[in-house]
Design a protein around this nucleic acid. Structure first.
Lengths: 213, 213
DNA sequence: AATCTTCTTGACGAGGTTTTTACGCCCGTG
DNA sequence: CACGGGCGTAAAAACCTCGTCAAGAAGATT
């Protein structure tokens, strides 16, 4: 019986990927409550997938699964940002119990929108209202922070200018012209490594902007 | 080396209890970030302590520790509401790694109210309501002390003006304008080394204030 | 009653923030 | 290739926020 089947039998909605890169891509673009990563994956180890996700600010719950029994591996897994770890072979009941324990914690946290996020050498803590780039503190004005937050909250997707006007500028009649562009330019100026050739805050001509990492 | 010593060496503040009922009482009455429960405890098993706490709504993070190796026990522990589980004997590094993983999830939000606090050459005792700067007693008026306390309790975070009005001024209708600023100015005047260039009581333009040290 | 302390408020200015304006470039299209 | 709309950017203009001061109200103290 596979892990998928096991959890499906428990009533969970499960998706699976058969290799590392595929899983990483899915985990990056779709919202999940919990990831179960096998360390031994074709193309990319579970450790790598885990590290990639964490480095890109994904705070989804991660349960690592491996046949290795050396303690050093368990520690490496947890240090990389996994939330729990399970040895193969494992008791199906224990897997289910751990999944439940993890989900219970994740749900609790969903209630308090704690958002921190990092990309490149930039670290954003929306709660503290602090932004650093390469360790140096960066001063962002109110609108800049709101705009960044909105883009990051919708990272990976194109955010139409309309949507930004509605949600960041709150329907303020008349606000248009180049206002959005100006704020985007300032964000790039302050956060991008090459503001002239932005990598994270991308322009989608004719539509809007997209944050991508 | 005991678990207490191990974690203390890592820089954590640790308290321990030598039997089940004592631990339960302490965990009930004092705020902790994380509990480590041995299943084998005099007077009351770790399982029972865990269940009691959960039944009374305590959502503190719990790491269970046991020598038993049967899977059934591990499952029981998790089902009772423990967040993680570790077999004895364990690698000290793994314990630390798990504690870190748990705290990362749980501790993010937790800020426990303080009774005494010091920064710079200032010493604040909220219980006695006494404040000294450089050994000299400083007289703080009621509102000033409340304001300071609120900021210190939320140190590191930005406290919006709204929140201050709600919690320090208790929704008093109409109270706004420059009232907050004035009290902040007085605090700075009395506590900051350079009131004109405040280091601890910071203003976050457009949002509120933040205490930071 | 007189005085003192605490709290609140309004005026004002300095300085930061947001929007607008203006201009030039780039890119896709005819 | 010429054209036009969309975008980047700088600078000016409009706007807002906060720190400070001074004055007054309310309450406590003497």
């Amino acid at each position: 019986m596979t892990v998928s089947d096991l959890l499906a039998d428990e009533g969970y909605v499960v998706e699976s990927a058969s290799d590392g890169p595929t899983g990483l891509a899915r985990a990056t673009n779709e919202p999940f409550d919990l990831l179960i990563l096998d360390v031994m994956l074709p193309g990319m180890s579970g450790f790598e997938v885990c590290r990639e996700l964490r480095q890109h600010g994904k705070d989804v719950a991660i349960l690592m699964l491996t046949a290795k029994t050396q303690v050093v591996d368990r520690v490496v897994g947890l240090k990389l940002g996994a939330d729990d770890y399970l040895n193969k072979p494992f008791d199906p009941a224990e897997l289910v119990a751990r999944v439940e324990a993890l989900l219970r914690r994740v749900c609790k946290e969903k209630l308090t929108p704690v958002v921190s996020f990092q990309f490149s050498d930039v670290d954003v803590d929306f709660e503290k209202g602090e932004v650093t780039k390469g360790g140096e503190s960066v001063a962002l004005a109110g609108k800049e922070l709101q705009l960044l937050r909105y883009l990051v909250d919708h990272r990976g997707k194109v955010v139409p200018r309309e949507e930004l006007l509605e949600n960041v500028w709150e329907y303020q009649a008349g606000v248009s012209s180049r206002t959005i562009d100006v704020h985007v330019a300032w964000l790039r100026q302050k956060l991008e490594t090459y503001p002239q050739n932005p990598r994270y805050i991308q322009t989608v001509r004719g539509v809007g902007y997209r944050f991508s990492n």
